[in-house]
């Protein structure tokens, strides 16, 4: 059976749920759909989730992935949860900056600062 892509890994640190994208590029619409289903099911399993999305492996994304992130953030905020992004490659950070998505996402340099941010959040 072919491995399911794209993959995510899920870890728990304190009260934070850390989701790491394991693929370098997230391109196809069906991959984005699969990611959405996986992440939404994690969101639904917790009450007031403190989610950190770790981009350490991601080197390229398209505007469809930005749309996915907005859908995830809306879902999390609806459930009174928190969302943080971290370890974003400088070229991808530039995409967030020019689209002004840095205004709506909490972006941290690394997992340590993102985890600290989530432990100080109420």
């Amino acid at each position: 059976m072919a491995p399911i892509k794209p993959r995510i890994s899920v870890e728990y640190a304190g009260n934070a749920t850390i989701i790491t994208f394991t693929d370098e590029k997230i391109l196809e619409e069906k991959d984005i759909q699969a990611l959405q289903e996986s992440i939404m099911s994690v969101v639904e399993q917790s009450e007031r989730i403190n989610m950190i999305l770790d981009f350490r492996n991601v080197r390229f994304l398209s505007s469809s992935v930005l749309g996915l992130l907005i859908r995830i953030s809306k879902k999390i905020y609806e459930c009174d949860g928190k969302l943080r992004l971290c370890n974003i490659d400088p070229k991808i950070y530039e995409v967030f900056k020019i689209t002004r998505l840095t205004k709506i996402f909490d972006i941290y340099q690394d997992i340590e600062s993102a985890t600290e941010g989530s432990s100080t959040a109420d």
């Binding site: 907005i70 689209t99 205004k103």
Partner: peptide, 12 residues
């Protein structure tokens, strides 16, 4: 528009 899930392609 900033909160919409689409509409960024041409801008990019």
């Amino acid at each position: 528009n900033l909160y919409k899930t689409g509409g960024r392609g041409l801008f990019l």
